[in-house]
Amino acid sequence: MRLTQSFGSALLLVAAGVAQATSAWGFADGSLAVVAKKAAGTVKEKLNQKTPLSTPVSLGSTDTLKLILTATDNGDGKRPHQAFLVLQEQDSGLEAPFPLTVKESGKAAVQISHKDIPVQLLAATKPLKASVVLASFGSSQGLNTPVFDVKIETDASAPAPAYEKPLRYGKKPEIHHIFRPDPTSPPKVISLVFALAVAAMLPALLIGWVVLGANLNHLSKAIGAAPLSHACFFGSIVGMEIVFFMYYISWNLFQALPVIGVVGLVAVFSGTKALGEVQSRRLAGER
């Protein structure tokens, strides 16, 4: 088998220069026409099965592409079973076959316009590769050869051919949550300046009081009259502030409330006596 094959191929080589290969499909009288609706722009090209057209043919949205050829088996016109014009998208390799209507004599023709071409090919950016496939049953070698390129010209005024990709299971684009920005603070210098300004108010206040004649001259008198009450009352006011401070630093409400209760009671009981002492000084005309 292999021997006969190699013999055959040798024969083929010999015959190649003289005529077409023994028993192989081909075509003759190939011609391509792009007919515009307005008869002005008809383009005609002769087709050759050995060399494809060098420049792409452009096909507008109202144009019709007509391909006419005569299929030959070993040089004689004959009808093949398979006579397709195949348009191929160059990037994806997607193909669309267009069967030629073939007569008994091998004369074949096909017409293609935009509405015949699948939308995936219409949306192609590169020219489509058109090949002719001629083959049939039996031992004749089939022909599958590129003959020309078609550039699809879409109508600028019409909407572009919309093609929605079908859903395919695969990995999806990643999503990373965009977090809200963190709260910001003004520059520390500004905060510090204003904090110092606020803190400076305390000495300003105290100095103001002293200038106006504030003093603690009655302290000894008051302590002398009601030592326990005054100590407890003033102590409870300071203590209340300490409780508030502790609440701010670490305590929770349930730790703070009982202590506030105790300190408050002390303030009420010691306060009546201490403030009574203050009143007695006022009544005595000392204030």
């Binding site: 106006l212 603690l216 001259n217 009655h218 203050v278």
Partner: peptide
């Protein structure tokens, strides 16, 4: 508070 309770009038 301290001033109010213990300050002597000028």
């Amino acid at each position: 508070v301290a001033l109010w309770m213990y300050s002597a009038p000028v």
